[in-house]
């Protein structure tokens, strides 16, 4: 179900991970993603998984809650797995008609699936432990140096804030529209590709109309609350880089070195 998607949700808490500067978490997540693509063997994945498990434990976010995010993207993971399983050439393990599984395909499929799972869990840890406003504030601060070359860092950050805020609203809206059209006998499941694409029109048109209405209402509400761009704006919670952040940064670098080293095992 739509409401199972945990990516972008915040899990309130006061753990060590929650208290880290958003910038630290953004950079750490970026490093972590890079690491995942550097990893090429079993030991590397084992270390990564162990580090991730440690971070989850530190964050005190229930494991159940984290895994719920995975169920929503299970199809993508399964698809990636199958694609790699059958598409890679190499030493044949099993063969039936046009389907062939190779040793290389099997290991690649496993690694890709594990990689995806780790990506999703890792990045959802960031969003689950960081308030959306802190996340976007952190992003705004990180991008600030680039505003000198014309990058609208404040606007990008605000757009993200609003996007995160309205994901649940739009999902509810979509759910309602789908149900309303189903109540009028709409069928989204049968027919060929063209017919199915056409059957989306009764959902997409009302969804666009609703989105524009929401955008209009929101713009008005923001204007009424004196929004006039980023200049002269202050923040209730100034984000601050503290000792814990330095510790986290050092640990991340150590982790990166270990991972690179693991390639040579």
């Amino acid at each position: 179900m739509i409401r199972d998607i945990t990516l972008g949700q915040y899990y309130p808490g006061d753990s060590w991970v929650h208290r880290l500067d958003a910038r630290t978490k953004i950079i750490a997540t970026l490093l972590y993603l890079i690491e995942l693509f550097v990893v090429n063997n079993f030991y590397g994945f084992l270390i990564t998984a162990a580090v991730l498990a440690a971070v989850i434990a530190l964050s005190r976010v229930p494991v159940k809650f984290i895994f719920r995010g995975l169920t929503a993207v299970f199809l993508i993971i399964a698809f990636t797995f199958l694609l790699n399983l059958f598409m890679v050439d190499g030493r044949v393990l099993w063969h039936w008609k046009f389907l062939t599984i190779t040793y290389e395909g099997l290991s690649r499929a496993f690694f890709m699936a594990i990689r995806l799972v780790l990506i999703i869990i890792g990045s959802s840890i960031m969003t689950l432990t960081t308030k959306p406003v802190e996340l976007t504030d952190g992003l705004e601060k990180l991008l600030y140096p680039f505003s000198k070359i014309g990058l609208p860092s404040h606007e990008i950050a605000l757009m993200m804030t609003i996007a995160l805020r309205f994901i649940p609203t739009l999902m509810e809206e979509t759910d309602k529209i789908i149900k309303a059209q189903q109540a009028r006998g709409a069928d989204f499941e049968s027919g060929n590709l063209f017919q199915r694409a056409k059957s989306l029109i009764p959902i997409l048109v009302p969804l666009f109309v609703s989105s524009f209405r929401i955008a209009q209402d929101l713009a008005l509400a923001m204007e009424a609350r004196c929004y006039h761009g980023g200049s002269g704006r202050t923040r209730m919670n100034e984000i601050r880089f503290e000792r814990a952040d330095a510790v986290a940064a050092v640990l991340m670098v150590v982790f990166l070195i270990v991972i690179i080293a693991s390639r040579f095992i």
Binding site: Y10, V133, I162, R165, R213, I214, D217, A221
Partner: peptide
Amino acid sequence: DNQIVSSI
């Protein structure tokens, strides 16, 4: 719904 800007 449409006048709340931030998620928290």
